[in-house]
Simulated assay, not measured.
Amino acid sequence: MTYAEVNGVSLWYEEQGEGEPLILLHGGFWTIEMFGPLLPALAARRRVIAVELQGHGHTPAVDRPLRYETLGDDVAALIRHLGLVRADVMGYSLGAGAALRTAMQHPDQVRRLIVVSAPMRRLGWFPEVPGDSARPHALRRDRRTLSAGSGRGVPLGSRMRRAQPSMRCVVQNDARLVEPAADWAAALKSATVDTPYQWDWA
């Protein structure tokens, strides 16, 4: 196991392969396990650095709110910790939000940005999501059901608890992340980061 002490967080990461660096960021309630066979496939041509974000997997929860902005700072600090000038950053869902904030707040450290399944403005959510996700009944429901598909029927909570006992804290913190009112589109337009596709700014 490899940890980097960044911003008061013991950030766990795993490295595979050689070549241009690629930071991989998992989705909420998950660990790097979610990437499955994709991780070694990418590592066949790249130096892949798979990170477990604050309060997820081997990275412990700390006395700090879970916010996309601080997650972005953590990723940038890891890039510096590894002695890299710049890296490509790919994130899914929660990790995509962290990747976006890394590029917005530290554009000089991100070469290419790959965002999978994440809104960049509040209108990107279904109308009922921001109001519903922070309610206690929704937290209990999501903890049971969010493993559908890639979880192959294994309750998501059991996967998280193998390495992260403070599951309730993680669920509550993750749910609050769907409530930002900010529109990130304008800031992203000015970020000097390459993307492998064209953004739709409409």
Rank of each mutant, 00 (worst) to 15 (best):
M1K: 03
T2I: 09
Y3W: 10
E5Y: 06
V6T: 08
N7C: 02
Y13W: 15
E14G: 13
E14Q: 09
E15G: 06
E15R: 10
Q16N: 07
G17V: 00
G17E: 03
E18F: 09
E18A: 12
G19V: 08
L25S: 02
H26V: 05
G27T: 03
G28C: 02
F29R: 04
E33Q: 10
F35Y: 04
G36K: 02
P37M: 01
L38Q: 01
L38K: 00
A41C: 02
L42D: 12
A44G: 13
A44M: 08
R45D: 15
R45V: 09
R46C: 10
R47V: 07
I49T: 01
E52T: 13
G55E: 00
G55A: 08
G55T: 02
H56P: 07
H56L: 06
G57Y: 07
H58T: 02
T59C: 08
P60C: 03
P60G: 01
R67I: 05
E69I: 05
E69C: 07
E69N: 02
T70Y: 06
T70D: 14
G72D: 07
V75R: 06
A77T: 04
I79T: 03
R80Y: 09
R80D: 15
G83T: 05
L84M: 09
R86L: 02
D88Q: 05
M90Q: 06
G91E: 06
Y92R: 00
Y92L: 09
A98K: 01
L100H: 05
R101M: 14
R101F: 11
T102W: 02
A103G: 14
Q105P: 07
V110G: 03
R112Q: 12
L113F: 12
V116A: 11
V116T: 08
S117L: 03
P119I: 01
P119E: 04
M120E: 08
W125R: 03
F126A: 11
F126D: 08
P127T: 04
V129N: 00
G131L: 06
H137Y: 09
L139S: 01
R140M: 13
R140T: 15
R140F: 09
R140W: 04
R141M: 07
D142R: 14
R144V: 10
R144G: 05
A148D: 10
G149D: 12
G151Y: 10
G151W: 11
R152M: 11
R152T: 06
G153K: 04
R159M: 10
M160T: 10
R161M: 15
R162H: 09
A163F: 13
Q164Y: 08
Q164A: 12
P165M: 05
P165N: 01
P165E: 02
M167P: 00
M167N: 04
R168W: 12
D174W: 11
D174S: 08
D174R: 02
R176S: 14
V178C: 10
E179K: 08
E179M: 14
P180S: 13
A181S: 11
D183Y: 07
D183V: 12
A185C: 15
A186G: 15
L188T: 07
A191Y: 04
D194Y: 12
T195S: 15
Y197K: 02
Y197G: 14
Y197L: 12
